[in-house]
């Protein structure tokens, strides 16, 4: 009786919004599939954590080197209580956000300039190609010499990585805009600024968002590498510090916080996608 009732209730919830029985069935199938994927993802995560914890307790792996979930949990709480984890995370997030925003804006402006001037885009093309394929991390030590061992070097490091990616991705997106759409808008007498505003930019929104997503990751890489090299604070610093004093619990806790922070930042950018790409099914 009660079971029956629950099942009906669940079914009704899964097929909510259905217009006809067939449509309801369709919705239910889609939602069931989604649920199955989520559930499996969750189980996978829990299993991995459990295996890690058990393996360490049974000494199949050495927790002194690999750390273990319970130790990470305790380290995290200790650091949360004295606030230090928030300080370090905050600094890393601040540096990442700064270089992400500056890199995106400056990179997009440069891409617009290149689109505007066919001549300069041709002139600058080989430089951009070479800069793009250079591992920017190799420049890190030089930035320290030029800018000192502070936040300036870290942000410059991250900025160099994110700005070049942005230029390349956004400019390529601009170039891929259907020339016939430009022809169409020219039949109405559009000038170059209007072509940019009404066709090139809106048509490139998907590319720009893709660039943003790549960019968050890139800025993060730049910041962490920068912190490895020079910092006295930040998650990158904590990881290096933990490693140097052989406090693997500390290093691992920082890595976990880093992963979660990266996921949150990425998700925030992904939200933009839903907002701006409403016209795509």
């Amino acid at each position: 009786m009660w079971k029956e009732h629950m099942r009906n209730k669940i079914n009704r919830h899964l097929s909510r919004g259905g217009i006809t029985p067939d449509h309801a069935y369709y919705l239910r199938q889609i939602r069931l599939k989604k649920l199955a994927v989520w559930a499996t993802q969750f189980i996978l995560l829990v299993t991995l954590i459990l295996l890690w914890e058990l393996g360490a307790n049974m000494r199949l792996i050495d927790p002194f080197i690999t750390s273990q979930p319970s130790a990470i949990y305790h380290t995290f709480w200790r650091m949360a209580k004295d606030g230090s984890i928030f300080l370090h995370t905050g600094i890393t997030v601040l540096e990442t956000t700064l270089s992400f925003i500056i890199g995106t804006i400056a990179g997009s402006l440069i891409a617009i300039f290149l689109w505007w001037s066919d001549f300069f885009s041709r002139v600058l093309d080989p430089y951009i190609v070479i800069l793009n394929s250079t591992p920017k991390i190799a420049l890190g030590p030089l930035f320290i010499v030029f800018l000192g061992d502070g936040i300036k070097s870290i942000i410059t490091m991250a900025l160099t990585i994110s700005i070049i990616v942005t230029i390349v991705m956004v400019y390529t997106g601009f170039k891929e805009v259907d020339p016939n759409k430009i022809k169409l808008i020219r039949t109405f007498g559009a000038n170059k600024l209007q072509i940019l505003e009404k066709v090139v930019l809106p048509a490139s929104v998907p590319t720009i968002i893709a660039a943003l997503k790549v960019n968050v990751g890139m800025s993060f890489v730049g910041v962490i590498v920068g912190e490895f090299l020079v910092a006295r604070a930040g998650l990158g610093y904590l990881i290096v510090y933990g490693q140097q004093v052989f406090q693997l619990h500390l290093a691992m806790t920082s890595v976990v916080v880093l992963i979660i922070t990266a996921a949150i930042l990425y998700q925030m950018v992904a939200c933009l996608e839903n907002r701006f790409l409403g016209w795509k099914e």
Partner: peptide, 30 residues
């Protein structure tokens, strides 16, 4: 730029990010 001519191209080239209404407003906006 003289705005004397209206040219309907052989293909529609509607802007997929604009609704029907906004597509129709395109020329007027420009």
């Amino acid at each position: 730029s003289s705005q004397k001519l209206g040219y309907m191209l052989q293909q529609d080239y509607l802007f997929e990010w604009r609704t029907v209404y906004k597509n129709i407003m395109l020329g007027l906006e420009i």
